[in-house]
């Protein structure tokens, strides 16, 4: 699988997105097949790339931020393929594919950022549930956006644009409601398993995260919001309807972005930001990312002296 790079599947998704954009301008009999072909080819390349990284590097499906973002993008791309196959008239790609490409881009930008430690069970549950919760929030965001656009058209009595036909409000509302519930459950599992992991670390004498750590309070804030939204949804019946649930999912997206921003950018003692203390991890990443570390433009690592030293030892600088 040495020939497959991030560019391969990102380019495939980009072409599928370009095909989706052309829906707005002209009709075509072959566009549907082209979109599915490119998105399908992208997903296959994406799967092979992830599988190759898993087998060559180990460390579980969410070994580091790079894998985490790529896996989230993979799930979203699979969701896009499914939706486009069953609802070919709806331009789901216009909403989902930019998110897929955005996640891949984030993965690429943070490809040297932290590893999440070994493949312990609690770590795996923590990483995977947070990942799934994030994907569900993103799907809810897409459904919410579609709902608001379509509701606006229907409220203003505008005829449907022949080439831009969104799914019905009922469909979008149903997806919104479900994503709100599932994201709360998944992110709840993620945060609780993180607490369990922290407690285990503490009991084993390893370093535990303090409550004041930005990763802890930002994740807690996201979970608190989702719990509040779900409770509001449960107690106040109109909140399960129409625009309110769409607004709730959009707000969830904002909280998610805030949480991710804090986790990725604010210094923390979270293992994902401690990886560069471990020489072998950096070596591992550089080897697996695609042996192009030598050509990388100089970028600022959080623990630069150590990283640079390791990179020099490895002959990449």
């Amino acid at each position: 699988m040495n020939g497959i790079t991030v560019t391969c599947f990102a380019a495939s998704y980009a072409v599928a997105l370009a095909c989706e954009v052309t829906r707005l301008f002209f009709r075509s009999g072959v566009r549907g097949a082209l979109m599915l072909t490119f998105a399908g080819a992208g997903l296959v390349a994406h799967s092979l790339y992830l599988a190759a990284r898993l087998t060559s590097y180990g460390g579980g499906p969410v070994a580091g931020w790079f894998e985490w973002f790529l896996l989230a993008a993979w799930i979203l791309a699979a969701a896009y393929l499914y939706l486009t196959f069953y609802h070919p008239r709806n331009p789901f790609g216009l909403f989902i594919l930019p998110l897929v490409l955005g996640l891949i881009a984030l993965g690429y930008v943070f490809r040297f950022e932290g590893a999440f430690g070994g493949a312990r069970l609690w770590g795996l549950v923590h990483g995977l549930s947070l990942l799934m919760g994030t994907v569900v929030v993103l799907i809810g965001f897409v459904a919410g956006l579609m709902y608001l656009i379509e509701a606006n058209r229907l409220k203003h009595k505008r005829p449907p644009a022949g080439r831009f036909r969104l799914p019905s409000l009922e469909w979008a509302e149903k997806v919104n409601g479900r994503t709100l519930v599932f994201s709360t459950i998944l992110l709840g599992i993620g945060v609780l398993s993180g607490l369990a992991l922290n407690a285990i670390n503490h009991s084993q004498g390893a370093m535990a995260l303090p409550w004041s750590d930005p990763v802890v309070w930002s994740s807690g804030l996201l979970l608190a919001w989702l719990l509040a939204a779900a409770a509001f949804n449960f107690v106040y019946r109109p909140a399960r309807r129409g625009r309110k649930v769409a607004y709730l999912t959009l707000a969830s997206m904002i909280f998610l972005l805030l949480a991710l921003g804090v986790i990725l950018l604010v210094p923390s003692k979270h293992p994902s930001q401690q990886a560069f203390d471990k020489d072998e991890r950096v070596t591992g990443i550089c080897c697996n990312v695609g042996s192009r570390c030598r050509d990388l433009p100089g970028r600022e690592f959080r623990k630069e002296p150590k990283i640079v030293a390791v990179a020099r030892r490895g002959g990449w600088l």
């Binding site: 379509e150 229907l154 005829p159 969104l166 019905s168 409000l169």
Partner: peptide, 13 residues
């Protein structure tokens, strides 16, 4: 128009 362009876009079924 009433059914296909509006009602069907509000309700899935």
């Amino acid at each position: 128009v009433a059914v296909a362009d509006f009602a069907k876009q509000i309700f899935e079924r």
